[in-house]
Design a protein around this nucleic acid. Structure first.
Length: 110
DNA sequence: GGCCTGACCTCAA
DNA sequence: GTTGAGGCCAGGC
């Protein structure tokens, strides 16, 4: 029901916007929720597009990191700064504790 | 159309 | 822990 419209990017943006503050998500996770399993790269590409789009101020791209719990974006310093201000803690090595800050989506039953 | 690159992921060594 | 190789798809030339 996620529809198969050509608005794949909008779908990704929508999911990224759903990530609550103080939490982060991974490219693969977003891709999966968007209905594109295995296409994590597209998510990264879509977010990269934000750097050159008007949505850069509407989508919290900084809450998206790689599966390793590390920042891949070129502006890692900025991203980390924002995440820390949101409450996300980083390890001495620059890793995020995915076990605590990863947003797995709308999972009601825990 | 083809070729290279990329804000990725997973498996194997 | 790291590095290498394969797979995925969208731009730019």
């Amino acid at each position: 029901v996620e529809n198969d419209s050509p608005n794949s990017y909008e779908q990704i943006y929508a999911l990224v916007c759903q990530i609550p503050a103080g939490m982060v998500s991974t490219y693969g996770r977003i891709a999966l929720l968007a209905g594109y399993p295995g296409r994590a790269r597209l998510v990264g590409y879509a977010l990269h597009s934000l750097s050159d789009a008007r949505a850069s101020g509407e989508v919290p791209w900084w809450r998206v990191i790689n599966a390793a719990g590390r920042i891949s974006s070129p502006n890692a310093e900025l991203q980390r700064s924002i995440l820390e201000s949101e409450g996300v803690q980083f390890d001495p090595r620059g890793y995020v504790d995915l076990g605590r800050f990863v947003w797995e989506g709308d999972h009601e039953g825990d």
